[in-house]
């Protein structure tokens, strides 16, 4: 087994400007390395984080990413929360559809990010902001 995890620390990265998306990517990569994710899994998680951080910035009007080590007793992993106080998503089913976009993106952000992680949870409603939690486990 791996050594006992260090006390849980949440790394909070504000998402306010364009280059904050880069900072989120870098922080998530550092966390993925610490959790000993494989190279492919690191790449998937960082890519998903990049899509979701951009959504937070563009659609949520800015917000934050909360990055932490996860541990379910059997595996280690990384959990990232993307939270904003923006307009929220009125039609979640539609927003999760491949190719659907309300902006000028490619419509792969949400649906694509979901495919790249092991757990994907979204909490949103019109006028209530959006909170997306993703987790990737080391194999």
């Amino acid at each position: 087994m791996y050594p006992a995890a260090a006390p849980q620390q949440v790394n909070l990265v504000p998402i306010v400007r364009d280059d904050d998306v880069v900072r989120v990517r870098q922080a998530v990569r550092t966390a993925a390395l610490a959790a000993k994710l494989s190279l492919v899994d690191q790449t998937k998680l960082v890519t998903a984080a990049s899509e979701l951080a951009r959504n937070t910035l563009i659609y949520g009007g800015g917000g934050r990413a909360e990055i932490e080590q996860a541990d379910n007793g059997r595996k280690r992993g990384v959990r990232v929360v993307f939270a904003d106080e923006g307009p929220g998503i009125a039609d979640l089913e539609l927003a999760m559809t491949d190719g659907y976009t309300s902006g000028n993106g490619m419509g792969l952000g949400l649906s694509g990010a979901r495919r790249l992680v092991d757990e994907f949870d979204i909490d949103t409603a019109a006028g209530r902001g959006t909170r997306i939690t993703v987790t990737k486990w080391a194999r």
């Binding site: 492919v40 790449t43 998937k44 899509e51 694509g112 495919r115 790249l116």
Partner: peptide, 14 residues
């Protein structure tokens, strides 16, 4: 393009 990037791109749907 790195192999891990190629795998991720395909899964992302790009």
């Amino acid at each position: 393009m790195r192999p891990a990037v190629a795998i991720t791109l395909v899964e992302l749907g790009l």
